[in-house]
Nucleic acid binder design. Sequence first.
DNA 1: ACCTGAACACCGTTCAAGT
DNA 2: ACCTGAACACCGTTCAAGT
Lengths: 231, 231
Amino acid sequence: MAAKGGSQGKRPQRPAGSLPSMEETGSEPALSIERIVATAVELLDAEGVGGLKMRRLADRLGAGAMSLYWHVDNKEQVFDLALDSVLEYRGTPQSIEAEDWRGAIFHMLEDWRASMLRHPWSASLLPRRALGPNILGRLELLGRILSRAGVDEADLNGAIWSLWNYVMGATLTRANFDLSDEDMLAGQQRLAHLSAEYPTIERARLLLDNDWDGVFRKGLGFLLDGLVPSR
Amino acid sequence: MAAKGGSQGKRPQRPAGSLPSMEETGSEPALSIERIVATAVELLDAEGVGGLKMRRLADRLGAGAMSLYWHVDNKEQVFDLALDSVLEYRGTPQSIEAEDWRGAIFHMLEDWRASMLRHPWSASLLPRRALGPNILGRLELLGRILSRAGVDEADLNGAIWSLWNYVMGATLTRANFDLSDEDMLAGQQRLAHLSAEYPTIERARLLLDNDWDGVFRKGLGFLLDGLVPSR
DNA sequence: ACCTGAACACCGTTCAAGT
DNA sequence: ACCTGAACACCGTTCAAGT
């Protein structure tokens, strides 16, 4: 489950002739993994993880119900591909990366989180999915920057995973809690009735008062303080 | 989604007469939320999230296929209840808690993580589920200890959420990657072929060489260093 | 090579009916 | 109050067949 094949299909690479970006010009362009993945992302954005059904995806592509199965092994693979497609990273210029490692890490990890929050379904998907090329690319970049910043070879994996854990937790929590502000409110109101049992978090209004972005940056800073020796 | 009702059912509290712990004595004891939840946890442990089907759960309870729906609204509620039931915390003695706040936090959070790893399905469930009484209890305890340790009222929520994020991310990652060592191995082997593109993480053997427990404790320590003023 | 509809297996949930 | 089987709606996937 952790790191399966990336984007291999049974289908050979499509010849260079076809134009992927012709819009709905009467008849749809031919099916292709690219179109399937792009449309899957649209559908997931619009309806969430539960809204992605093979039939609806095919429908939206103007294709017959079961045509997808020629391009894709199964629904799992659609998830894998959609997830990785959303995590591309344009990267920081090498120059910045070299002189301001802290800024480079913050930039990449905040962008990671932002990318996932733009597609909230991706947060719940990522921990259970294959590591596609975009994800691996980000991990590689992270390792490189940390290494240059002075993290020992022996501590590198630990540092990478610590940051991964923090980013994943923060993003997942934020994505899910954010989906339902009313629920948070309801939860806090229920808490009020139980203030005898949960006085501290009730008084702090834990479920309401949150500067998620600020909290994220602050904790990330603390982690980096510890992980990277302050030469 | 964030914080729905805890354990209210349509069913009134069962009268105090019945014994919950009589084993399979020929005929099964009557259905009850307690039995349903306990059996759901068994099933989840044995077969994972995908293995919990209402029919199979009923089967295992020796009940007719659809009897569950009298005790429970729907499958979602079974998940909510199973999750919270697994997160009970016996707690630390007040004395320890007062003098060694750091130890108390480590104890509670490591226990939290361990409880979830004992039931790996719980990790993927938690971020999307209602906050049941056991979860709220742990958050309350965490808030209380942090507060006593000197965290400002204004910083309390941020501190709690930072720790929550870290624990959730670490546990989720560990639970999922751990499920499939072979996949990790396969992933690392695939990485070897791509060492041109991912030289750093390939060399570090990121996908293989991991002291998860140690990494968890270390990162947690760094976070606490930052979050709690070192008087 | 690429697409298609019919058909199968499976599953959550409702409902009318039992005791 | 508590349990039940039949039935419905829905969905992933296979398959034999089309072009």
